[in-house]
Measured scan of single mutants.
Amino acid sequence: KLPPGWEKRMSRSSGRVYYFNHITNASQWERPSGNSSSG
């Protein structure tokens, strides 16, 4: 399961899957890690 705020999306241009955070408006190709504590 993804960390809070993150969701899986697909890029229309490349067709690749990326991850988008609707809370911080951040996007990245790598899967966000939800196990590590923020610090």
Score class of each variant (00 low, 15 high):
residue 28 Q to K: 04
residue 26 A to D: 09
residue 26 A to L: 14
residue 19 Y to L: 01
residue 20 F to A: 01
residue 19 Y to N: 00
residue 26 A to T: 15
residue 28 Q to S: 08
residue 29 W to V: 06
residue 30 E to S: 08
residue 31 R to Q: 06
residue 18 Y to S: 01
residue 22 H to D: 04
residue 10 M to G: 04
residue 32 P to G: 01
residue 37 S to D: 11
residue 3 P to C: 05
residue 17 V to E: 09
residue 15 G to F: 04
residue 30 E to N: 09
residue 27 S to R: 14
residue 4 P to Y: 10
residue 7 E to Y: 06
residue 38 S to P: 12
residue 17 V to A: 07
residue 36 S to A: 13
residue 31 R to G: 03
residue 27 S to T: 13
residue 33 S to A: 11
residue 12 R to I: 15
residue 13 S to R: 14
residue 19 Y to V: 00
residue 32 P to V: 01
residue 31 R to D: 08
residue 5 G to E: 06
residue 17 V to D: 04
residue 20 F to E: 01
residue 13 S to F: 12
residue 36 S to K: 08
residue 13 S to N: 11
residue 18 Y to K: 00
residue 14 S to W: 06
residue 15 G to K: 08
residue 16 R to H: 06
residue 12 R to W: 12
residue 28 Q to V: 05
residue 23 I to G: 04
residue 11 S to K: 06
residue 31 R to F: 14
residue 8 K to E: 12
residue 9 R to K: 08
residue 2 L to I: 05
residue 28 Q to P: 00
residue 29 W to Y: 09
residue 24 T to M: 05
residue 22 H to G: 05
residue 35 N to S: 13
residue 27 S to D: 03
residue 26 A to H: 14
residue 37 S to E: 13
residue 31 R to K: 09
residue 7 E to C: 08
residue 7 E to G: 03
residue 13 S to W: 09
residue 36 S to G: 11
residue 9 R to E: 03
residue 39 G to H: 10
residue 3 P to V: 01
residue 10 M to E: 10
residue 18 Y to Q: 00
residue 6 W to K: 01
residue 37 S to H: 11
residue 30 E to Y: 07
residue 2 L to N: 01
residue 20 F to P: 01
residue 5 G to K: 02
residue 25 N to Y: 09
residue 2 L to H: 02
residue 16 R to F: 05
residue 15 G to P: 02
residue 23 I to D: 07
residue 32 P to M: 00
residue 4 P to A: 09
residue 30 E to H: 09
residue 24 T to D: 05
residue 9 R to C: 15
residue 32 P to E: 01
residue 39 G to E: 11
residue 23 I to P: 01
residue 19 Y to I: 00
residue 33 S to H: 10
residue 24 T to K: 02
residue 38 S to Y: 09
residue 6 W to L: 01
residue 30 E to W: 08
residue 8 K to Q: 11
residue 5 G to V: 02
residue 14 S to H: 09
residue 34 G to Q: 12
residue 16 R to D: 03
residue 20 F to N: 02
residue 19 Y to R: 00
residue 32 P to D: 00
residue 23 I to K: 06
residue 11 S to G: 06
residue 13 S to T: 14
residue 29 W to N: 05
residue 19 Y to A: 00
residue 3 P to L: 04
residue 35 N to F: 10
residue 30 E to K: 07
residue 13 S to V: 15
residue 33 S to F: 10
residue 11 S to F: 08
residue 39 G to V: 10
residue 9 R to V: 05
residue 26 A to W: 11
residue 22 H to E: 05
residue 37 S to P: 12
residue 32 P to A: 00
residue 1 K to S: 12
residue 7 E to D: 04
residue 5 G to P: 07
residue 8 K to H: 04
residue 33 S to K: 10
residue 24 T to H: 03
residue 26 A to M: 14
residue 21 N to Y: 03
residue 6 W to H: 01
residue 23 I to S: 06
residue 11 S to N: 08
residue 12 R to N: 14
residue 39 G to P: 11
residue 24 T to L: 06
residue 10 M to I: 15
residue 13 S to D: 13
residue 26 A to S: 10
residue 6 W to M: 00
residue 38 S to N: 13
residue 20 F to M: 02
residue 24 T to W: 04
residue 3 P to D: 04
residue 20 F to H: 08
residue 39 G to T: 10
residue 15 G to Q: 07
residue 3 P to T: 02
residue 38 S to A: 12
residue 14 S to F: 07
residue 38 S to Q: 10
residue 17 V to C: 07
residue 16 R to T: 06
residue 13 S to K: 15
residue 5 G to Q: 04
residue 23 I to L: 12
residue 8 K to F: 06
residue 18 Y to A: 00
residue 22 H to T: 15
residue 17 V to I: 13
residue 39 G to M: 11
residue 4 P to R: 06
residue 27 S to K: 13
residue 17 V to K: 03
residue 30 E to L: 07
residue 31 R to S: 08
residue 37 S to Y: 09
residue 25 N to W: 09
residue 33 S to Q: 13
residue 33 S to V: 14
residue 32 P to S: 00
residue 21 N to D: 03
residue 36 S to Q: 11
residue 13 S to A: 11
residue 21 N to T: 01
residue 14 S to P: 05
residue 8 K to I: 13
residue 38 S to L: 10
residue 29 W to I: 07
residue 8 K to A: 12
residue 30 E to T: 09
residue 34 G to H: 13
